[in-house]
């Protein structure tokens, strides 16, 4: 599991890699939230292109960051969800939030 956050003007891109479960989600969450709270952002993008597995902890991670971003007036997007994770995303209903690209 890895998490790398990069800033490009006022957009932060968080590249998550490896497996997202209850164990790894807390570290990913802390890193992203610290970054979001200490930088002046207009947009937060979660890039899932390097995620190899996620269970519903990944859904919780996305939902939690969505809520945080919204409370701070930051735009929020999730990009590059791998094909094999589409099923869990669809099942969760978070597709309707309009945050996926």
């Amino acid at each position: 599991m890895g998490i790398k956050v990069e800033m490009n003007r006022d957009t932060a891109v968080a590249l998550v890699s490896g497996e997202i479960d209850h164990h790894s989600a807390s570290e990913i969450r802390e890193k992203i939230d610290n970054f979001v709270r200490t930088n002046n952002l207009k947009e937060l993008i979660l890039d899932f292109s390097k995620v190899s597995f996620m269970d519903t902890s990944g859904i919780g991670l996305i939902l939690g960051r969505f809520k945080l971003a919204r409370s701070l007036g930051v735009n929020f997007k999730v990009i590059n969800i791998p094909e094999k994770m589409r099923r869990i995303i669809n099942l969760s209903g978070i597709k309707n939030l309009g945050i996926f690209e």
Binding site: S26, D55, T56, S57, I59, G64, L91
Partner: peptide
């Protein structure tokens, strides 16, 4: 709590 989606059993049921 807020970081848990509450979907664990729903996933087990549907998968």
């Amino acid at each position: 709590g807020s970081e848990r989606a509450g979907l664990g059993f729903a996933v087990m049921k549907s998968f």
